[in-house]
Design a protein around this nucleic acid. Structure first.
Lengths: 336, 336
DNA sequence: TGTCTATTCGAAAACGGTTTCTCAAAAAAC
DNA sequence: GTTTTTTGAGAAACCGTTTTCGAATAGACA
């Protein structure tokens, strides 16, 4: 691999001059710039960015730590992040994990060691160690999609509490009063917010909260199927189900199908995320949509702003998008 | 941020000794090792890996250049790659692109500049420049899923020609003779191979090849819908459709539904990939499955082997998995 | 006691760039 | 023609590590 010295030798100048020429600095003549650039081009010279970073302490790289829970909505966000990095000439290091604070922490530390200029984290838990880590490191951090309460961290995401309200009011307006909630884990911020929105909206409309209608662990298909069976066999079984994700909603629909329960005649279902191919389903799913791609992009933009203004600790930014109800065919009037 | 010098000062030794202590080198006493490690721990010292890389010329990082065409199968492979990197203590830099040789090339160059130890590429085209690039660079490259003919590159993927044959024989055995093929772009290696398998299998069973039944560009939903309309309105319209991906197959099913054509009574459909939620569809899709996660893992393992044995150019490796037919409900006997 | 070998550590040279500082030559001003 | 200013290029320091090499100390042995 050619180094700057090889180029210097061939062009008959010093390494410093080559560096300045390639960076278009003012204190090198146009004629040498041309010559140096031509030689570098000919030799297929690619500057060693890690050597450069060592002296500039800038890597033009940002890191992303995000779980992959089989959720296409997260992939959409990832695409948005990637897209914004590309157009801002930043390289993205994506660390996918299976969820959990330890893995998140170790991935974030690996990124720090690589001297990324900033980090985006989608935390799945509310770990003290992660919180402590975030306050300790000196580079900008932006949280995406999931918040950690108590850190003054910048955040970009959607208003899940509002999202829950929107979905619930749709169901309630259709006459439903027995509504079940199917979540993943209450520790996950967005899931917690959604569940809270669910509960508060019930209260707002004077519908009693029944905790046997709130079911967790539905990212596992076996647990989900058991949950569906159990809840459908309680006295005054739900006539509507609110799911934390579209994936869960689809799984529920499939299970109900096996139990010969019809959607939406017997049970209405509403999902969350608006993942792409939903509209193609036999019974198109009613859902609450977020601007996933946009959230990814905006997160990067916010992070880059923080990187630009470097140390100066301006007030933190929060960008919270409003979810939007998309009514399709999986919800209908409550059965008498 | 603390450097090795800060640790050295605090521990009362030289920077070199700190380095050796933390790396557990033999020429430093156990007592100093303990002291240095304790001090480093206390100070929250994280070694600057890019500085280290500069001297060791090893970054413990690999790069992945892959398109995101909305295809969950690719995401599954990505997960496999990520997983194998994690368990081998490598960091992964994922470069998602929208397809196309230029973007692939520039992403690969950015990775080279970052001195990754090896690169995995899923090329979407058969560009001369990319070919030339691959032969020029000095670090190991493994191609995943898609091959570039002519480079002696290592490769991990599935046998699409065989996959096509398997799927086609299933359809033919059900009595179908008018079979359409819905692809993305013929330049994409796997798509080309699948199309060739389609054609050769027809020939093998003495069924004439009709080029009006082969339709491209179906990653765009509008084009796909037009294609479906067109092909279903030709004389002797197909009684079966083979799609290059499950996503395309789903889109076709949805469009047929709108046209009041029944699956599988009027038309059989077979997809390709076996993406996760297929079985949940109203009409579960018959498909040809690949071990996506495994392919991702094995690609990393092969790449790491190449990195280990460094310069010594042993014969290249190719790992080709055999696809597997999964029969569900979207295929049935040909209509008389 | 003197020599020889192990052990342990530090000094210094890399790695491949960027940047600051210096200085000579050329251009401009008088 | 002399002085001042501007321009262009090189020398050297530096970024934060690792690694080589040599020196000092301790231990072993005759």
């Amino acid at each position: 691999m050619n180094t700057i010295k090889d180029v210097a030798k061939k062009a008959g100048v010093s390494p410093g001059t080559v560096s300045k020429a390639l960076l278009d600095r003012h204190d090198v003549s146009n004629s040498t710039k041309r010559r140096v650039k031509r030689v570098a081009e000919e030799m297929g010279y690619i500057p060693n960015i890690i050597a450069r970073s060592l002296v500039t302490s800038k890597t033009n790289t940002i890191g992303l730590v995000t779980p992959y829970l089989g959720n296409p909505a997260l992939i959409e966000r990832l695409r948005g992040v990637q897209n914004a990095c590309l157009s801002n000439k930043y390289l993205l290091i994506t660390c996918l994990n299976e969820g959990g604070a330890e893995e998140e922490l170790s991935q974030a530390e690996a990124l720090i060691a690589r001297k990324v200029d900033g980090i985006i984290i989608t935390p799945t838990g509310n770990s003290i160690k992660l919180k402590e880590f975030i306050s300790r490191i000196e580079i900008p951090v932006v949280l995406m999609s999931e918040m950690i309460e108590g850190t003054g961290c910048d955040f970009v995401g959607e208003d899940d509490y509002e999202g829950a309200k929107t979905g619930m009011e749709h169901l309630i307006s259709l006459g439903h009063r027995n509504i079940a909630y199917f979540g993943s884990f209450p520790e996950i911020y967005s899931d917690g917010r959604l569940a809270k929105g669910y509960r508060d909206t019930l209260e707002k409309y004077g519908i009693p909260y029944r905790k046997e209608l709130v079911l967790w662990g539905n990212t596992d298909r076996d647990i989900l199927e058991k949950n569906v069976e159990r809840v459908m066999n309680t006295v005054s079984a739900p006539t509507a189900i609110f799911a934390w994700s579209d994936i869960i909603a689809i799984d529920i629909m499939s299970k109900l199908g096996k139990m010969n329960i019809n959607v939406p005649e017997d049970v209405s279902i509403i999902g969350y995320d608006n993942i792409d191919f939903l509209s193609l389903f036999h019974i198109p799913l009613t859902t609450v949509a977020q601007p996933n791609f946009l959230i990814g992009q905006k997160t990067v933009e916010l992070l880059l702003e923080c990187i630009e203004r470097d140390g100066e600790n301006e007030p933190t930014g929060k960008l919270i998008f409003r979810p939007e109800l998309i009514v399709r065919k999986s919800t209908g009037p409550a059965k008498k």
